[in-house]
């Protein structure tokens, strides 16, 4: 198949998958017959008031009709109003998306920065003490509950030693908002104080989120390098007298990273959703804390909107990974 065909067929599948996702999530949110009109109207509302509100909000119609209305509204970017913030859910989500993306990107950068070099070292020095220690660490990294790690790091670095801020994204007002990404905004406005604050606030949440991902990348890189390191071209390059470092870090790594790149795409989705719990611990004002507050408020529509948004991001990222894959490994085009 040609690249353009793959991309087109994937794009075509995007629509039924998204529609299916909305239908599934909508019915999940409505399995239990609750009476949202009564909740919104409050305890002192009369039966007539509740009835009027129910008709106004469309809760008196059959479920499939409500779904139709929801999908129609969704197509125009309307997700309904949050019970918790009293604002349109779409606005709330859009406002909070940059915070979560910033955290996810920071975590991905840390995870790659740790995982790939350590994975190469682990493979090159296989079965040495370094390799053993790294493998124990990577297995451990995958077994730690992220919310627990978050709490322990917060307790040590913030509460005990006062090295990092306790929670939040910034102290004070922060940089003038352009993109909503504080690190980017403070660079654009050359606001060094905000930049330092933003980075310091990012440190613990990003590291917490990054550790399991770093462990996964380390394992895949190690396996990939081990697979490639015994190939004939490495033997040939060694015989040609190329420096060992050049062979490993350039030629071996490039071939070994194919499966790692696919993993990084999957990891992005895992991190994006893992942010829910990590954000909850650090009061990071992103999608995760919004979801948790919506849970506490039993705000079904907000959770519905959150789930769909995460689904969309997840699908788009996977699409990008598939397309990237055809460039990195042209064998998939066959």
């Amino acid at each position: 198949m040609r690249r353009i065909e793959i991309i087109l067929s994937r794009l075509l599948w995007l629509i039924p998958t998204l529609v299916g996702l909305v239908v599934v999530v909508f019915f999940i949110a409505n399995v239990v017959p609750t009476d949202p009109a009564r909740i919104i109207a409050g305890e002192n509302a009369t039966t007539e008031q509740v009835e009027a509100l129910r008709a106004e909000l469309g809760f008196d119609r059959p479920l499939w009709e409500q779904l139709g209305i929801y999908v129609r509204d969704l197509a125009t970017g309307n997700m309904g109003r949050s019970l918790y913030t009293q604002r349109p859910i779409a606005d709330d989500l859009a406002h909070r998306l940059p915070a979560t993306l910033e955290l996810t990107f920071a975590a991905i950068i840390i995870a790659i920065g740790l995982g790939i070099p350590l994975g190469v070292v682990s493979a090159v020095k296989r079965n040495s003490l370094t390799d053993q220690v790294l493998r124990v660490l990577s297995v451990s990294g995958l077994a730690i509950a992220s919310f627990w790690l978050a709490m322990e790091l917060q307790m040590l670095f913030s509460t005990r030693w006062g090295l990092t801020p306790l929670n939040g994204r910034i102290s004070g007002f922060g940089p003038d908002e352009i993109t909503g990404f504080f690190v980017l905004d403070s660079l654009l406005t050359w606001d060094m104080e905000s930049l330092g604050g933003a980075l310091l606030h990012l440190l613990l949440p990003a590291v917490t989120l990054a550790l399991p991902a770093a462990a996964t990348i380390l394992r895949f890189t190690r396996a990939g390098v081990l697979e490639v390191i015994n190939s004939n071209f490495v033997l040939y390059e060694t015989a040609m007298g190329l420096p060992r470092g050049l062979i490993i870090w350039k030629y071996v790594l490039r071939n070994a990273l194919i499966s790692t790149v696919t993993q990084i795409g999957l990891i992005f989705g895992v991190l994006f959703s893992g942010a829910v719990v990590v954000e909850a611990v650090f009061d990071w004002p992103g999608l995760g804390t919004y979801a948790v507050q919506s849970i506490l408020q039993s705000d079904n529509k907000a959770i519905l909107g959150f789930t769909i948004l995460v689904g969309v991001v997840f699908i788009v990222v996977n699409l990008i990974v598939d397309i990237l894959h055809t460039f990195i490994d042209p064998r998939t085009l066959k």
Partner: peptide, 20 residues
């Protein structure tokens, strides 16, 4: 695929939240 389109924990949150 539809179920795999959302990270497991997010969908599980949505279901567990609805059911109580």
């Amino acid at each position: 695929d539809i179920f795999l389109a959302v990270p497991q924990i997010v969908l599980a949150i949505a279901i567990a939240q609805t059911l109580g």
